[in-house]
Design a protein around this nucleic acid. Structure first.
Length: 317
DNA sequence: TTTATTTGACCTTG
DNA sequence: CAAGGTCAAATAAA
């Protein structure tokens, strides 16, 4: 990926994105070197951790640049507020009365439509709430037809501060076992991911794999569980029935086994914008192999995820 | 007092 | 028109 192969006419933000990808590629190579040498991983765990975090940051940065460029069909400065779509143009407090709100909403009809038809979603079925590393704020709850449980709507806590458009919906599935359908809509453009602490364990002699344990900051810092688990703080009277007290350590800790073999999982997921995929996948994709993700929840069930409604129009790789 | 959640109204979509 | 998604005032929690 030589920079000379790119047309000189590329806008500066695209060049920046390309540079980010190149840097990420170099760092990934570094990781690959370490991958086959578990003794090095152990001795330099912090350095490995830092590389992973750098790569993730580069992916987020690149996607942010690409998305901001492609959303409007032209290249522009992502900080230019003129290019924010109608959906987000409105700020809280703009409407003191219902009548005023009604008028404005009608005027932004195009924005609504665009939002709903073009947005990509990722749906995940899980037996417990997953800490995806982002801070979410609940903004709605709705009774869904033919469903015993209400659907809960969350948006990124940094929507107002940074204009992050990521939202997610959480709905309990009517099943004999407690399961949740979590639908992520849009991707995060905020820089407030609570980075996971990554613990790499040496491979076992019997299993040619590397165990990487992702633990969120919520476990490291006292009294911050509420922030990280805003989605867990639902009410029992209307929303989901009580599952009892969740074990935070178990729920927020995931183990990834890097196994030789199948690549199906990665190939299925990789085209999706990194920052909109639940961290369950994003973190795993850092390494060159594919993972079977085991959610070590209080129930110990496997979590399952799939991508619905691909829309790659914003991401021309 | 500040911040987050609840909840009914409003709006879009099919 | 029904169903689902979002807003924002009211309320609760920290």
């Amino acid at each position: 990926m030589e920079s000379s192969s790119w047309p000189e006419s590329l806008p500066s933000n695209w060049i920046k994105a390309i540079q980010e990808l190149k840097d990420g590629h170099i760092l990934t190579d570094k990781l690959r070197e370490v991958h086959g040498r578990p003794e090095k991983i152990e001795s330099d765990l912090e350095a490995v951790n830092n590389v992973v975090i750098q790569i993730l940051g580069m992916f987020d940065s690149t996607l942010s640049i690409l998305r901001s460029s492609s959303l409007n069909g032209s290249h522009h400065n992502p900080n230019d507020m003129r290019f924010i779509n109608h959906w987000d143009a409105k700020k809280p407090g703009d409407f003191g009365e219902r009548t005023k709100r009604t008028t404005t909403r009608l005027n932004t009809k195009i924005g609504w439509k665009k939002k709903r038809t073009n947005i990509s979603t990722v749906t995940q079925i899980t037996s417990s709430f997953i800490d995806d590393g982002y801070a979410w704020r609940k903004y709605g709850q709705k009774v869904i037809l033919n469903s015993k449980y209400q659907r809960n709507y969350y948006r990124c806590s940094y929507k107002l501060e940074q204009g992050c458009q990521a939202t997610k919906q959480v709905q309990m599935i009517d099943d004999e076992l407690p399961k949740y359908k979590i639908t992520y809509c849009g991707h995060h453009t905020c820089n407030n991911l609570q980075r996971s602490q990554i613990v790499v364990e040496a491979p076992s002699p019997s299993d040619n794999s590397v165990l990487i344990s992702f633990k969120t900051n919520a476990l490291m810092e006292n009294n911050k569980v509420g922030t990280c688990f805003s989605t867990v703080k639902h009410t029992h009277k209307e929303g989901f029935p009580s599952l009892g007290r969740l074990n935070y350590e178990h729920v927020s800790s995931f183990d990834y086994h890097s196994s030789c073999g199948s690549n199906a999982g990665l190939s299925q997921v990789s085209p999706e914008p990194m920052s909109m995929i639940p961290r369950l996948y994003c973190e795993g994709m850092v390494l060159p192999r594919v993972f079977r993700s085991t959610c070590s929840s209080t129930h110990g069930y496997m979590s399952d995820a799939k991508i619905e409604n691909h829309d790659y129009s914003d991401f021309h790789f």
